[in-house]
């Protein structure tokens, strides 16, 4: 265990960004409009690094960009050259919160471990070092991570815990260990035998996920779906901010002549008609009810059955971002209330 003095936080990040491997350091900062998001440290040196509270956006874009080229094709007379495109940029994400870390663990399960890996996600994941920061209390009124166990940091390379003097710094992997031993970094840190306190806060937004997959299966036809979904605007804000939403579509983009083209993987949203449209313009999930139910059931039911994990990490972002106040926790509460009726 190391101690990082409060006044040394910037030096620590500077040291990270000056390491020899030329990793880009990504940090949480605040935009002029107030939004807290992740960006390159190098470009934002004048900005404060936000180490407390939830970030408005998770660092999902570094693993699942909205649009990512996954292959390109070059045609000639009698031949086509197919090129695989993988992102090999090395990064350190500094300050990732426990909820977003847990979302990555869920994505690893679905996108890497289940059947064949999504190579594009895998490459980005392998090339990223994660430096987490513990949450010591519920950071906003909507989150409910403590009821899902996702308030505990897991799967990090290094983790920081805030204490009075600054931060306790611990390693979570060999990569993290080696990084902490690097000259420029090690000298900023002091050895300590202090231990971080056990994390045991409770969020204000209470959710009961006991046998949730059974609850949702049983209440697939519940009237709650219609009641809640009626006002949805299909704006897709919820799926965009969700750190564990990963659904994508694929499209080709033709160059100026039709010799060169690129294949793009693009994030999609189950709140759109196009998500389930097939031939003869038939849309399987046409109604708002069906769309919202897909979102909630993927989070709390389908993911549990298929991947043995709840997809939702309880960050509460979808609740805060919804313009018509559709609330995933309220929906589940209501369904529990209506259970079997």
């Amino acid at each position: 265990m190391f101690l990082l003095k409060k006044q040394n936080l910037r030096n620590f990040i500077d040291a990270l960004s000056q390491n020899e491997a030329k990793l880009k350091v990504i940090v949480p900062i605040q935009k002029d409009d107030g939004t807290i998001y992740y960006d390159e440290y190098e470009k934002n040196k004048d900005k404060e690094i936000i180490i407390e509270g939830r970030t408005d956006f998770s660092p999902k874009k570094y693993f699942l960009p909205e649009i990512e080229e996954i292959a390109n094709f070059e045609k000639s007379e009698n031949e086509v050259i197919i090129k695989e495109v993988l992102n090999n940029e090395k990064r350190i994400i500094f300050g990732i919160r426990p909820c977003d870390l847990n979302a990555l663990l869920f994505l690893d399960e679905v996108l890497i471990k289940y059947m064949y890996p999504d190579k594009n996600y895998e490459a980005r994941r392998k090339n990223t070092i994660l430096i987490a920061i513990d949450c010591l209390e519920a950071c906003n009124k909507s989150c409910f991570c403590s009821y899902l166990g996702t308030n505990i940091a897991k799967g990090y390379d290094i983790c920081l815990t805030k204490i009075k003097e600054g931060f306790l710094v611990r390693e979570g992997s060999n990569i993290g260990k080696n990084l902490l031993e690097k000259d420029g970094i090690r000298k900023i840190l002091e050895k300590t035998d202090k231990e971080p306190k056990q994390i045991s806060f409770e969020c204000k937004n209470k959710i009961n996920v006991e046998k949730i997959e059974e609850l949702l299966e049983k209440n697939f036809e519940s009237k709650v779906w219609q009641e809640e979904a009626e006002r949805c605007l299909n704006c897709t804000s919820c799926t965009q901010v969700c750190p564990s939403c990963y659904c994508f579509y694929v499209k080709d983009e033709l160059g100026f002549d039709d010799k060169k083209s690129r294949r793009l993987k693009c994030l999609d949203s189950c709140f759109l008609d196009r998500f389930s449209r097939i031939s003869r313009d038939f849309v399987f999930r046409k109604s708002n009810k069906a769309k919202l139910r897909q979102f909630v059931c993927h989070n709390f039911y389908y993911s549990l059955v298929r991947n043995k994990m709840i997809k939702c990490v309880g960050c509460g972002r979808c609740i805060d971002v919804c313009p018509v106040k559709i609330n995933i926790v309220e929906i589940i509460k209501k369904i529990r209330g209506y259970d079997g009726k």
């Binding site: 679905v110 996108l111 289940y114 059947m115 064949y116 999504d118 990963y246 659904c247 994508f248 579509y249 694929v250 999609d268 189950c270 998500f275 389930s276 449209r277 097939i278 031939s279 399987f284 897909q294 059931c297 993927h298 039911y301 389908y302 059955v305 298929r306």
Partner: peptide, 24 residues
Amino acid sequence: LERLMFCGFGKCMHCNISTKYACI
């Protein structure tokens, strides 16, 4: 059954029907 499909191995979620995937 016919569903929209973009991957074929349980990644894109477009073929998802309840807990099943039409591609798997």
